[in-house]
Nucleic acid binder design. Structure first.
Length: 498
RNA sequence: GGCCCGUUAGUCUAGUGGCUAGGACGCAUGGUUCUCAUCCAUGAAGCAGGAGUUCAAUUCUCCUACGGGCUGCCA
């Protein structure tokens, strides 16, 4: 077994997931959270949830609730966070404003930052005049003390900007990608503190990561270009930076950004559709990481045991719905009936197939048949409808194909009579099979010529579980009623005698 | 445009300076069978292209192409 160096050499591994509550938690964010969580759990470290709500214009209380709900649903429990607290509370950045202001002042005092009085309008026109984007022109970088004081006295709105080095490079090491180097001429004098007194991501993120003693920053690769800013900030504060590991992004099927256009993107949507959290976790874990050769399925504990940043891949991965569906189906099949019944219940209830008065175990027989035919929990509704509902819909194509032949009516009539003769308590697969086989033999038909029409008559569909199980599950009363209905409505009328 | 990151079948991936480049999803065919699903078996399908280093490159280096990201008082 490989020895995990990071575990032995640094006893306090602390990682964080730091979402911004501006929208529902999407699968990309969930994957980032998952890798942080797996890394923390694997190493016996601490997983922290920090909410980066520093953008007041985009804040969404709904999103905040959704992020917590979705993470909980996925089972990614956090050790410190806005709701559970912790030694570095608060974990909501909007409640830590004074900390960022103090730190901005500190950088001002040490000469690493400066007041900028440029208006948004000026910056806009600056940008529109630039044929190539070169960022802020640093107009306020060298204002004299008296000029600054004059503006301050005049109460001119300002931001505080960071003084990036004007030449040289900023280098850092990425655990997944190795050394990365950026020319400083590419870097802007980015804003630390906005006019409204809120910090930007860069300031708040660095300050909090330091204060919260974050040891490893695992985040999406879209953050690579701003890492030099962060490295410079750590430097200016005199702090040593955490280990950086930038995770590959998740792309939509076919490439490109993940969005609604490509189907579900939010965790909540997958949840509503009937995916199991274990399946989604397993699937997401395999996007950008692998268990090693020949392994796809793994429980949470196995994922935790096996997880390592060493084998996180560098390449962006496309989200593949077919594989997720396959995985969800295998997880569904592995569930004990009582658990599956509870999970499927809300869907059945919503479809009116069960009510509060329905005993849970009453759906077990039907569920057992549906179980290996479901990919989503919601599939229970179409799969189980013919077993749980009195009324069923008939698929016109199936009716046309299997109920329109002349021999059908006589078969159905004969079977209906024989079924009627079976005692209620014997209406079981084991009892039905010989009954039907006997009829098939007597009538000189092949089994399928009898079974297919029967199936359509009692289920309304051309496909169903095995006919004997299906009949038994539907029950004697409904079976006979449906055959009668089919005879009356679909089967061609034939002379009584045959 | 500039900068940065990346490139193994359609997709997710394993892997090595020398192997028939392995697995999974999906797809195809066959088996089981009353249909569907499951299950089993088999098959098609890949190292982006070009230089170089080397006895030998999918593996190392460079270039090109392609993909992605950043270039905000968003995160």
């Amino acid at each position: 077994m490989p020895v995990d160096q990071s575990h032995t050499s640094s006893p306090s591994i602390r990682v964080r997931f730091a979402p911004s509550p501006t929208g529902l938690l999407h699968v990309g964010g969930a994957r980032t959270a998952l890798f942080n969580w797996l890394f923390a759990r694997h190493s016996g470290g601490t997983f922290i949830l920090r909410i980066e709500d520093t953008d007041r214009t985009r804040f969404d209380a709904n999103a905040l609730r959704d992020i917590l709900d979705s993470l909980r649903w996925l089972g990614l429990n956090w050790d410190e966070g806005p709701d559970v607290g912790g030694p570095h509370a608060p974990y909501l950045q909007s409640e830590r404003l004074h900390i960022y202001r103090e730190h901005a002042q500190q950088l001002l005092a040490s000469g690493h930052a400066y007041y900028c009085f440029c208006s948004p309008e000026r910056l806009d026109s600056l940008r529109s005049q630039q044929s190539i984007q070169t960022g802020y022109d640093r107009r306020c970088r060298n204002l004299s003390t008296s000029q600054v004081q004059r503006e301050l006295d005049a109460r001119t709105p300002y931001v505080i900007r960071f003084k990036m080095p004007l030449d040289g490079t900023t280098d850092f090491h990425d655990l997944i990608r190795g050394p990365i180097s950026y020319p400083n001429t590419q870097q802007d004098d980015f804003v630390l503190l906005k006019t409204d007194g809120f910090p930007t991501y860069h300031l708040a993120n660095v300050v909090d990561d330091h204060l919260m003693r974050i040891s490893h920053v695992l985040r999406g690769e879209e953050w690579i270009p701003s890492t030099p800013k962060h490295v410079r900030l750590y430097d200016a504060f005199g702090w040593s930076p955490p280990v950086f590991a930038h995770l590959p992004v998740i792309l939509a099927p076919g490439g490109g950004k993940l969005s609604k256009r490509h189907g579900a993107a939010a965790v909540a949507e997958y949840r509503a559709l009937g995916y199991l959290p274990d399946a989604l976790v397993n699937f997401l874990a395999l996007l950008g990481w692998s268990l090693g050769p020949d392994r796809e399925l793994a429980s949470r504990d196995e994922l935790i045991r096996e997880f390592s940043l060493e084998n996180v891949s560098k390449t962006a991965a496309q989200f593949n719905h077919e594989k997720l569906n396959w995985m969800n189906a295998t997880y569904i099949r592995s569930l004990p009936l009582n658990q599956l019944a509870a999970l499927v219940w809300p869907y059945l209830a919503q479809a009116g197939l069960v009510s509060d008065a329905t005993p849970l175990d009453s759906i077990f027989p039907a569920l057992k048949l549906a179980q290996e035919r479901m990919q989503l929990l919601s599939d229970a509704v179409p799969q189980m409808r013919c077993f749980l509902a009195d009324e069923i819909d008939y698929d016109p194509a199936a009716v046309k194909k299997f109920l329109s032949h002349h021999a059908v009516a006589s078969h159905l009539r004969a079977l209906m009579q024989r079924f009627a003769a079976i005692p209620d308590s014997h209406f079981t697969p084991a009892y039905l099979e010989p009954v039907i086989n006997a009829y098939v033999a007597e009538s000189g038909q092949s089994l399928k010529h009898v079974v297919h029409p029967l199936r359509v008559a009692v289920t309304g569909k051309a496909a169903s579980p095995g006919i004997f199980e299906t009949l038994a599950c539907i029950g004697k009363r409904r079976t006979i009623a449906r055959i009668a209905y089919a005879l009356e409505h679909f089967a061609p009328t034939l002379p009584q005698s045959q």
